[in-house]
Structure formats: C-alpha cells, structure tokens
Amino acid sequence: MKNERGFTLIEMMVVLLVISVLLIITIPNVTKHNSTINEKGCDALIKMVEAQIQAYEIDKGTPPADINALVDEYLTTEQTTCPNGNVISIGADGKVAAN
C-alpha cells in the first residue's frame, strides 16, 4: 500500500474553525474603525476648505458667498461632500461646517 500523505477531515475542520473565529473577531473591529476614519477624513476636508477660503480671499479680496463660489477654481465637486456623506457649507459668519 502506498503511503499517501494529506490532510484529514478533522484537520481541515480545525483550520476552518480557526479562520472563522479570526473573521468573527476582525470584522466588527474594521466596521467600528470605518466610522472613525470617515469622521477624521471629514475634519481634514473641512480644514482644506478653510485653507481654500483663505486663498480665495487673497485672490479676490472678498470672502466667498457660498461653497459653490469655490468649485472649479479652488475645489472639485467631490470635495464639497465628506466621506461620511455630510455636505460641507459655509455659514454666514464664514465658518465651515459639515451638515
């Protein structure tokens, strides 16, 4: 008889069990950190828009009326929405906020 070496069914089941446990542990952590990443991305985008407002004021001599005044020359349309879906706007006092 030949000595055929291979994995038994029990060994394969143990490996699948270990992989399943690792997935069960990691997936909730990844989704929890995803919202944190989106919030930090939104904060960074707001800081960038504030910098673009300052550049607009230096070039034009007056603050922009709204976020649309910055689009095309200073921002792209993708930069007016945060990664978490909030829309960036400029308030009457010149403050940038994501709503």
Rank of each mutant, 00 (worst) to 15 (best):
62 T>H: 06
40 K>G: 06
70 L>S: 03
97 A>L: 06
79 Q>L: 08
72 D>A: 15
69 A>I: 02
71 V>L: 00
18 V>C: 00
26 T>D: 07
51 A>D: 04
8 T>K: 12
37 I>K: 08
17 L>M: 11
83 P>S: 12
91 G>A: 10
96 V>C: 08
40 K>R: 15
63 P>K: 07
43 D>R: 09
91 G>R: 01
27 I>F: 14
78 E>H: 12
82 C>Q: 08
85 G>A: 04
57 E>A: 10
49 V>Q: 04
16 L>Q: 05
4 E>A: 15
61 G>D: 11
7 F>C: 01
26 T>K: 11
37 I>L: 13
16 L>A: 09
12 M>N: 10
76 T>I: 10
63 P>V: 14
27 I>V: 13
54 Q>S: 11
44 A>W: 02
52 Q>W: 13
27 I>E: 13
70 L>W: 01
11 E>P: 01
38 N>F: 13
94 G>Y: 03
82 C>P: 07
6 G>K: 03
12 M>C: 12
85 G>D: 04
50 E>G: 09
12 M>D: 12
87 V>L: 13
19 I>L: 10
61 G>N: 05
65 A>P: 04
34 N>Y: 15
23 L>P: 00
62 T>N: 13
53 I>H: 12
94 G>P: 00
98 A>P: 05
24 I>S: 07
75 L>P: 05
58 I>L: 15
52 Q>Y: 13
36 T>W: 01
91 G>C: 04
4 E>C: 07
71 V>Y: 02
20 S>H: 09
63 P>L: 13
64 P>Q: 03
96 V>G: 08
91 G>T: 10
98 A>N: 06
99 N>I: 01
50 E>I: 03
82 C>V: 07
84 N>H: 14
24 I>M: 04
79 Q>V: 07
71 V>W: 06
30 V>A: 12
59 D>P: 11
16 L>F: 11
64 P>C: 04
87 V>I: 13
32 K>P: 05
70 L>D: 03
97 A>P: 00
40 K>L: 14
6 G>W: 04
61 G>P: 00
57 E>V: 11
40 K>V: 07
32 K>W: 02
78 E>T: 09
63 P>Q: 07
64 P>S: 04
86 N>D: 14
42 C>N: 05
80 T>V: 10
92 A>C: 01
17 L>K: 01
37 I>R: 02
94 G>A: 03
45 L>M: 12
26 T>A: 07
99 N>W: 01
71 V>D: 01
30 V>Q: 05
68 N>P: 04
69 A>R: 01
68 N>A: 14
27 I>K: 15
71 V>G: 02
75 L>C: 05
19 I>A: 03
40 K>E: 03
22 L>M: 13
72 D>G: 02
86 N>K: 14
3 N>A: 11
64 P>W: 01
5 R>W: 15
60 K>E: 15
82 C>L: 06
67 I>D: 00
68 N>G: 10
84 N>A: 06
19 I>H: 00
1 M>F: 10
96 V>H: 09
51 A>W: 01
46 I>V: 15
34 N>E: 15
14 V>E: 05
65 A>V: 14
17 L>N: 02
13 M>P: 03
95 K>L: 06
61 G>S: 03
1 M>C: 00
4 E>F: 11
88 I>N: 08
93 D>P: 03
50 E>P: 07
27 I>C: 06
39 E>A: 13
11 E>N: 01
38 N>L: 15
94 G>S: 06
45 L>S: 07
50 E>Y: 07
25 I>S: 10
71 V>H: 00
87 V>E: 14
70 L>P: 00
28 P>S: 09
